[in-house]
């Protein structure tokens, strides 16, 4: 299945915006992704192996955090996975 990589992480996929990875669940796709592109791993996961809190992952149009089976959701070749870091901020808590 195709995985869309956000601009900051393309340095670890040889500049590719879209990479193709095999897998039957979101979790197995991610596992394969980090085998193919090992430098991505610390940017996506904490040392404990949890997806970093600011990294959003969408299976087609669905946030995997809100899917019943989360990372264990089944995926097939025609699905698309999008990795999208969060964007937020504001004037509160000024330095």
């Amino acid at each position: 299945m195709n995985i869309h990589i956000p601009t900051p992480l393309r340095a670890y996929t040889g500049g590719l915006e879209t990479v193709s990875v095999a897998g039957t669940t979101v979790s197995s796709v991610f596992q394969q992704l980090t085998v193919q592109y090992p430098e991505l791993k610390p940017h996506l996961f904490t040392p404990e192996g949890k997806l970093r809190s600011f990294v959003n992952v969408y299976l087609n149009d669905d946030d995997i955090r809100y899917l019943p089976n989360k990372e264990e959701t089944a995926a097939n070749d025609s699905d698309e996975l999008t990795i999208i870091p969060s964007i937020a901020g504001g004037t509160s808590c000024r330095l």
């Binding site: 956000p6 601009t7 900051p8 340095a11 870091p85 964007i87 504001g90 808590c93 000024r94 330095l95």
Partner: peptide
Amino acid sequence: SKTDFAEAHWLGC
């Protein structure tokens, strides 16, 4: 702001 920095994750942007 401190919040802008804490919530910024798009390196190179």
